[in-house]
Amino acid sequence: MELPPGPIGGQAAWVGADMAQRTDWIETFSATERAEIDAAIAEHKAAGREMGEITPETFRLPTLAPRLTRILGDIQHGRGFALLRGFDVASRPIEDSAIGYLGIGAHLGGFRSQNAKGHLLGHVKDLGLDIRNPKVRYYQTNRELEFHTDSCDIVGLICLKTAKSGGGSRIVSSVAIHDRMLAESPELWRALFNPMPTDRRGEIPPGMLPWFEIPVFNWHKGDLSTIYSGQYIRSAQENFPQARRLTPVEHAALDRLDELAAEMSLEMEFRPGDMQFIHNHQLLHSRTDFEDWPEPERRRHLLRLWLAPRQARELPPVYAQRYGDITPGNRGGIVVKDTVLRFTLEPA
């Protein structure tokens, strides 16, 4: 097991209280860029293309594309996230909003499946499902989400409608958490480099166990990559007696990671049309619980993308358990037996 030689630092090791005083992570579209997006949506529809045919070449953004390349660099090699603001969703049908969002996302990376149903365009919405069902994902409820990563390089969200109250997005630098844990408790820090059984929540690729075992912290070729879902690490302990039992030190390390994530995080409120893109390998994300509107047409609704940039960091071989192929541009996502890749405009 290779370990970092010491604190990592750098632009990625930020603390939420400091980041909250900055605005350089908010990227507002100019009038010219908004017009380009509108024209690209119209061209896509006029050509009769399917959503799956959206690529940087078909969704042309002459002025915005170079800016998106720079933003992608900030996400992958800088602070790890960006908020894109100024896209109008209020006056568009959901199909047009989805096309615009997919078009911008395509300039950042290829689309990856987000669940066993093969959804390439995810819907984050309270569907009134029972979280006690082991196949229900927390994003399908109104409950607070613990800090976690998703199974892809970059995760994107666009806000279509906000909740009556709550539902704030929280992000935190896993690099900063790593450095803090190294400084305050080397024993707990070291425990997070041990492989941890993590529940797949019923989404099991052929030939795989119902859980995967990857360390939370992974040091590989000069990069710290973090993969974490405390809820599913703990549910693996409850649901799978065959999975390795965590030690008291490992449990304490997870508890401390959760505490630091809450303490060091940045919370942002989404406005309709806001697009958030984050680098999963160096950030954890969560959401506060929320109260929704009683009217179905007003209820909180976000669309989600999982993206694989063609140029990306090399991941350690152990990630193949979760990502399948770990080749940049062709990795991440969830594919099980009989999965059919598709786009849908309805939550399901």
Score class of each variant (00 low, 15 high):
residue 106 A to V: 10
residue 76 Q to C: 14
residue 90 A to M: 12
residue 93 P to V: 05
residue 77 H to L: 05
residue 107 H to N: 05
residue 75 I to A: 08
residue 86 G to P: 05
residue 105 G to C: 12
residue 101 Y to N: 06
residue 124 V to R: 00
residue 89 V to P: 02
residue 75 I to Q: 01
residue 111 F to Y: 09
residue 88 D to M: 14
residue 136 V to C: 15
residue 78 G to F: 01
residue 107 H to V: 05
residue 68 L to Y: 06
residue 135 K to H: 13
residue 99 I to K: 08
residue 120 L to P: 00
residue 133 N to D: 15
residue 90 A to K: 12
residue 77 H to F: 03
residue 83 L to S: 11
residue 126 D to T: 02
residue 102 L to C: 15
residue 115 N to A: 12
residue 92 R to E: 12
residue 113 S to L: 01
residue 123 H to R: 07
residue 129 L to H: 03
residue 69 T to E: 15
residue 89 V to N: 07
residue 136 V to G: 11
residue 105 G to F: 09
residue 99 I to N: 08
residue 120 L to T: 00
residue 115 N to Y: 06
residue 137 R to F: 11
residue 81 F to S: 00
residue 96 D to L: 03
residue 103 G to W: 08
residue 131 I to N: 06
residue 81 F to K: 07
residue 89 V to A: 04
residue 139 Y to G: 02
residue 102 L to T: 12
residue 69 T to H: 13
residue 97 S to C: 15
residue 119 H to G: 10
residue 106 A to Y: 06
residue 101 Y to R: 08
residue 131 I to K: 01
residue 79 R to Q: 04
residue 125 K to F: 09
residue 86 G to V: 13
residue 111 F to T: 06
residue 133 N to C: 06
residue 92 R to T: 07
residue 94 I to W: 01
residue 90 A to H: 09
residue 96 D to N: 14
residue 98 A to K: 11
residue 109 G to W: 03
residue 69 T to Y: 09
residue 74 D to C: 09
residue 139 Y to L: 09
